[in-house]
Design a binder for these strands. Sequence first.
DNA 1: TGATATTTAAACACCT
DNA 2: CAGGTGTTTAAATATC
Length: 213
Amino acid sequence: MGPVIGMTPDKRAETPGAEKIAGLSQIYKMGSLPEAVDAARPKATLVDSESADDELTNLNWLHESTNLLTNFSLGSEGLPIVSPLYDIEGDDVPSFGPACYQNAEKKSATSKPPYSFSLLIYMAIEHSPNKCLPVKEIYSWILDHFPYFATAPTGWKNSVRHNLSLNKCFQKVERSHGKVNGKGSLWCVDPEYKPNLIQALKKQPFSSASSQK
DNA sequence: TGATATTTAAACACCT
DNA sequence: CAGGTGTTTAAATATC
């Protein structure tokens, strides 16, 4: 049978800037492709146990973001200067300017954020204190920062999960001992692909919207 | 125009 | 058993 008979066509109509991303597609080709991907991954040294889940609403950066707003720097052309703060090479570099989405955040209050799900997930994970998040927390992060999803149809969670499973950028880390909360695994960003994601983020046209299409 | 990415929907298996 | 989680397939559409 064929359900899925075309999603409401009007959906497309209202996602102006959001579509332009194609970020990953590009990086997939230009970036240093997978190769050693399964070779050695840091495994994300799982957090000890739970300190992760607790804090996740921590939003430390959020505090700053208030200021960031002011601090926010748009590229000369409106490109999201995502990072004067981190290097693509520094594998750690925790700070990523939340400022970038701060902006998007506002616009996406009612409209779809200009980021693909992969990017959304990436941001959520990167902001967690331990760089690892269970799906549930990913949902929360997205909801917190992109209220659009609060009212969006429920399918987006499915999409998030779909992305986690499908996208090589994300790796699952099982909570081996003790299954702590007993709920699912933690997800983190494959360091190998991180640069790619960052690239994609940089490319976000923000909401150059208004003229796409 | 074809290839690839993204999004969305849905079915299913597994686990708690 | 129900609900959440994770995987997979499929189709429509956008972008390169």
